[in-house]
Design a binder for these strands. Structure first.
Length: 429
RNA sequence: GGAGAGGUGGGUGAGUGGCUGAAACCAACGGUUUGCUAAACCGUCAUACUGGGAUAACUGGUAUCGAGGGUUCGAAUCCCUCCCUCUCCGCCA
């Protein structure tokens, strides 16, 4: 959520920022509501003041056993008027809030202006010495992750579909073990080496939490909703972890705070049928280790770089080729001010697959979720924190890259060295 | 699912219609005292919105005692609805 004051003082900048994000919004309407709201506030507060003062007088008169009927009658009229104005104000408040909630975050000045994926900028890439299809041509045809999964009975998409529907992967045997190993490995690195505190969050949350991080109201189509209890399955652990501190004021020593946590992630992916739906490339349920930071405003961009580096470290340890791209304004998500995507190499697809997205939301989420901190000393005013998060990482795309990059010419799969302590085996097949 | 209890400021906790934005205590912060620590004493100690002021210092007003609605000139206090927490019983990994 944007600060209404910012909008009041600089509507042009906001208008421009919205356009750059390929979004639409009627700024004039918002400003108009804001103006009417403030007019009514001035009016109703003055009336309330009168009521408070006169009510005191009535109390005095009654105490002195004098007649107060005239004033009481007078105040009855004022009270009715207040009631009416309060009602109008409630409506305007709701309208204004709704309008503000629908405005996207502004991109940081360092974000390249652009329309789509094509305008994203590659920042750097990394790969081990030999990469199938990238630095060396394969001697034998490469198998894709589905073929590899089938060959070694690691994945069973057919039975997953029987259980739940398409897009619900079933891991079996060494595949299940490998998945669990990946999760544990990633959490351990972030926890032990990168200073994140581990949390294991609920996977189902209420609507307030979804509003807090910005999934609602815009993305409601994309989430699984338990109507009976009005609860939502989380699309990412970002939601519960960021909302831990909703409506709280953090102490100075709690900022910055870093958290990492595993969760299953649920996405309906409504309207995306036919798009890259093969195997793991687009699923309704996947596993992800999420990183979340609560930081000071002045350091949030340094924190973003550090966050990206933390995610990169995982890929380097796993020796999986990747590249880092800075998203352009048009491709940056609704709530984000600046986003880097990390993409891993798929030899079978001959394509880079998005495996992580690291964003600085500045105070956009904090304002929605009302997460503040008290800078120092008891007299200081609370300020909104800046929130960041990044996938560190999602296992589905990572598993694709891992299986495909680690396949041998014989069709076996080598387990990356760092995962072997977690799997207990070094080779599949 | 059944029965009961309860939700007040950072915490404990008083408060059943007007003098309560809210006692008291604890914590925290500033200070005095002190060789240091401790103790004692004094003071400060919510947030949001809105107006004045320079988008300062400061200052006026309004709101907030789980949420929403109602009664009343006036509600933390009375009434209704909802939410949440806790305890006991049942069921259960």
């Amino acid at each position: 959520m944007l600060d209404i004051k910012r909008l009041r003082e600089n509507p042009e900048l906001i208008r421009e920022g919205i356009a750059r994000k390929n979004e639409k919004a009627d700024i004039e309407a918002v400003l108009d509501v804001d103006k009417r709201r403030r007019d009514i506030i001035a009016d109703v507060e003055q009336k309330k003041n009168t009521r408070n003062v006169v009510s005191q007088e009535i109390a005095q008169l009654k105490k002195a056993k004098e007649d107060a009927d005239g004033k009481i009658a007078e105040m009855k009229v004022v009270s009715d008027s207040i009631k009416q104005l309060d009602e109008e104000l409630r409506d305007l408040d709701a309208t204004l809030r709704e309008a503000l909630l629908s405005l996207p975050n502004m991109c940081h000045e360092s974000v390249p202006v652009g329309k789509s994926d094509a305008d994203n900028v590659e920042i750097r890439s990394w790969s081990p010495e030999h990469v199938i299809g990238l630095t060396e041509e394969p001697e034998v045809p490469v198998l894709d992750h589905l073929e590899l999964g089938k060959k070694h009975a690691l994945l069973d998409f057919d039975r997953g579909a029987k259980l739940s529907g398409s897009g619900f992967p079933l891991y079996t045997g060494d595949g299940a073990t490998l998945e669990r190993a990946l999760i544990n490995f990633m959490i351990d690195v972030h926890r032990k080496e990168h200073g994140y505190r581990e949390v294991f969050p609920p996977f189902i949350v209420n609507a307030d939490s979804m509003y807090g991080t910005g999934q609602l109201p815009k993305m409601s189509e994309d989430m699984y909703h338990c109507t009976e209890d009005d609860l939502y399955l989380i699309p990412t652990a970002e939601v519960p972890i960021t909302n831990m501190y909703r409506d709280e004021i953090l102490d100075a020593e709690q900022v910055p705070s870093y958290f990492c946590g595993y969760s299953a992630c649920f996405r309906r992916e409504a309207g995306s049928y036919g798009k890259q739906t093969k195997g793991f490339l687009r699923v309704h349920q996947f596993n992800k280790v999420e990183l979340v930071k609560f930081v000071k405003a002045e350091s949030s961009y340094d924190e973003l770089e550090a966050l990206v580096a933390n995610v990169e470290k995982i890929l380097q340890l796993l020796e999986i080729p990747y590249r880092v791209r800075l998203l352009c304004t048009g491709d940056t998500s609704f709530s984000s001010a600046k986003t880097y995507d990390l993409e891993v190499w798929s030899p079978a697809e001959k394509a880079w697959l998005e495996a992580s997205s690291c964003s600085n939301f500045e105070d956009f989420q904090a304002r929605r979720a009302n997460i503040r901190w008290r800078p120092q000393g008891p007299k200081s005013k609370p300020e909104f924190v800046h929130t960041l998060n990044g996938s560190g990482l999602a296992t589905s795309r990572l598993m694709v890259a891992l299986l495909e990059n680690y396949q041998t010419p014989e069709g076996k799969i080598i387990v990356p060295e760092v995962l072997q302590p977690y799997t207990g085996f070094a080779m599949i097949g």
